[in-house]
Write a protein that binds this DNA or RNA. Structure first.
Lengths: 115, 115
DNA sequence: TGACTATATAACTATATGGTTATATAGTGC
DNA sequence: GCACTATATAACCATATAGTTATATAGTCA
């Protein structure tokens, strides 16, 4: 990272920003076991159709998911599973190091190792 | 990540959010070769003192950096070097997969492997 | 064609936040 | 105490964005 210039930093920041939203993480989470269409993702995530569609559009813009229309449905899938490595790393860091408060610690130590 | 609940997702999202800002990445970048005080970081980053101080406060809240006062100076250092793994992963992903535009590709392939 | 379903988008609101300027706080040395 | 330096914070503005509602678009099937 040492030689990254301004423009590159902005790109990296934007990438992190795409992941910095609970609903988008939820969607990515739901896509772990394979592609799903918008209706399915809407139901799983508990959001509204419009909102999920917006998030999916954003995720697709950052190439985090791939879009494929089939009939009237649009299926989305993870573009690169290495995105989950990021989440694992973050969960690990939070679980191990950031858990100053006990209740937060519990959230992660109990659940983050199950993938 | 599969079993993460709402609260955990929010925490992960917040963590990503802490990294989703060019100036903060710049500061973290500047801390790669060891601790620095606020004045140094202000100069390196090119921001204002108040702004850098705000970013540092936020980074400290998320335990991304550690704070240590010595005299009138306050020194900050990376709390856990594994944060750079995240950046590496992201740089790799952007460089390899997200580089739809050639000019963006160049930003990363030329510079991101130098750490 | 028309009814129906699935998805995307536009317009809007409310909230969060990055940056700035000015000021407060705190340590050092006289 | 006073001057000086370093850092943090408060108040403010401008912008970005998550979510909502309503509507548009597009595919399917009768």
């Amino acid at each position: 990272m040492s030689a990254l210039n301004e423009q590159a930093l902005e790109y990296v920041a934007k990438y992190f920003k795409a992941l910095a939203e609970p609903m988008r993480l939820k969607v990515l989470n739901a896509l772990q076991d394979g592609e799903k269409n918008v209706s399915q993702l809407t139901q799983i995530s508990g959001g509204t159709q419009a909102n999920i569609s917006k998030h999916l559009t954003l995720l697709a813009q950052y190439n985090l998911v791939k879009r494929e229309s089939r009939g009237t449905n649009v299926y989305y899938k993870i573009a690169d599973p290495s995105v989950y490595e990021l989440c694992e790393l973050v969960c690990g860091q939070i679980g191990n190091r950031m858990a100053l408060e006990e209740d937060i610690k519990k959230l992660f130590t109990a659940t983050s190792q199950t993938d």
